[in-house]
C-alpha cells in the first residue's frame, strides 16, 4: 500500500490520476480505516488530504454563503458559533454521526464520498442546496451534492478527481432547516430512514422548500413532489398529509436486516412531517 500526503489538490489529483488499483482519499478515515481493518476495502493507494492548506477552514463569505474545507470535522461544525445558527439541520445531521471520538475525525465530504445511501449529513446538505468543487486533471467544476452519489459505494467522481471544497448557500431571511433520522436505538446506529427539509416562509406561507430523503433508495433523493406539497401552504394538516404521501411515494427501498420496504416507506412519510414542522418553526424564528 502506498501512502501519500500531498500539499495541494492538484498534486492529490495527479497522484490519484496515475495510481493503479484501489485508491482512497484519507479525510477523517472513519470509513476508510474501518473498512481497511475489517478487510472490506484494502486500498493500494491512500492519499491523505489533511496536509493541504486551508482544508480545516470554515469561511462565511460577505453574501452569507459558506465554504468548508474538506477536512472540517463534525465537531468543528458543531462548535462553530454561527454555522449552526444559520444551518442547524446541516450541523445536527453531521452531529448525529458516531460518537465524540468519531466526531473529532469524520467529515461531511467523507460522508458524501463514501457513498452510503444512509449517510446522515447528505440529505441535510441536499435540502440546503449545497454543492462541492471537484478538482481533477481537467481543472475545477462545481457539482450539486445530490449529483455526487450514483449508487451504494459509488460516486460520479472520475479517476483523478476529488472534492476540494464544500459550499453551502446563504441562509437568507426567514429560512429554516431540519434533519431527522430513524434508528431503532438512541445513538450509534445507522439510519433506516433520513429526511432533510429546508424551507423559507413569507409570514405563515411557505415560499421555497427542498426535501431530501436518505436510506430509502440507492442514492439520496431530492423529492420535487414533497417540495410542491409544501410550497404555498401554511403547513396545515392537508399539506402535511400531502408531504407524507409524496415522501412515501418517492421511496424505492430494499428489505434488509435494518428495515423492511413497508417500514421504510411508511416512516419516510412520518419523518418528513416531523422534520417539516421543525424547519417551519425555525423559519418563523420560533425555537424548535
Amino acid at each position: 500500500m502506498q501512502y501519500h500526503r500531498p500539499a495541494s489538490f492538484a498534486e492529490a489529483s495527479d497522484l490519484a490520476a496515475h495510481a493503479t488499483g484501489i485508491t482512497r482519499f484519507l479525510a477523517g478515515g472513519t470509513d476508510v480505516l474501518v473498512q481497511l481493518r475489517s478487510e472490506i476495502v484494502t486500498p493500494d493507494t491512500l492519499i491523505d488530504i489533511k496536509a493541504i492548506d486551508g482544508v480545516r477552514d470554515i469561511t462565511r463569505h460577505a453574501d452569507g454563503s459558506w465554504t468548508l474545507g474538506v477536512a472540517v470535522t463534525g465537531a468543528e461544525m458543531s462548535e462553530h458559533p454561527q454555522l449552526g445558527r444559520e444551518w442547524p439541520g446541516v450541523v445536527e445531521a453531521m452531529d448525529l454521526i458516531g460518537s465524540t471520538q468519531i466526531q473529532g475525525r469524520a467529515t461531511p465530504v467523507g460522508n458524501l464520498c463514501n457513498g452510503s445511501p444512509a449517510a446522515d449529513s447528505v440529505p441535510a446538505m441536499v435540502a440546503a442546496g449545497a454543492s462541492v468543487t471537484v478538482t481533477g486533471p481537467a481543472g475545477d467544476r462545481v457539482v450539486a451534492v445530490e449529483d455526487i452519489p450514483t449508487g451504494p459505494g459509488k460516486t460520479s467522481l472520475a479517476q483523478g478527481e476529488l472534492i476540494s471544497a464544500l459550499h453551502i448557500p446563504a441562509r437568507g431571511a426567514n429560512g429554516g432547516d431540519a434533519y431527522l433520522r430513524f434508528i431503532p436505538r438512541t445513538e450509534m446506529d445507522i439510519a433506516v430512514v433520513g429526511v432533510g427539509v429546508s424551507l423559507r416562509v413569507d409570514g405563515d406561507t411557505i415560499t421555497e422548500a427542498r426535501v431530501s430523503l436518505g436510506a430509502v433508495a440507492p442514492t439520496v433523493l431530492l423529492v420535487e413532489e414533497c417540495a410542491r406539497a409544501l410550497i404555498g401552504t401554511t403547513l396545515d394538516d392537508t399539506a402535511l398529509a400531502a408531504l407524507a404521501a409524496a415522501a412515501s411515494a418517492a421511496c424505492k427501498p430494499i428489505d434488509d436486516k435494518r428495515g423492511t420496504i413497508e417500514f421504510r416507506t411508511e416512516v419516510a412519510g412520518v419523518l418528513a412531517k416531523r422534520a417539516a414542522k421543525i424547519a417551519y418553526a425555525r423559519a418563523k424564528g420560533e425555537t424548535a
Binding site: T186, D256, K257
Partner: peptide, 16 residues
C-alpha cells in the same frame, strides 16, 4: 449471518 458486527447486532447503548 447477516449482522456479525455491533452496528447491526443491536445491543442497547447507555442512552437506550
Amino acid at each position: 449471518l447477516q449482522n456479525p458486527v455491533f452496528l447491526d447486532y443491536r445491543i442497547p447503548v447507555a442512552s437506550d
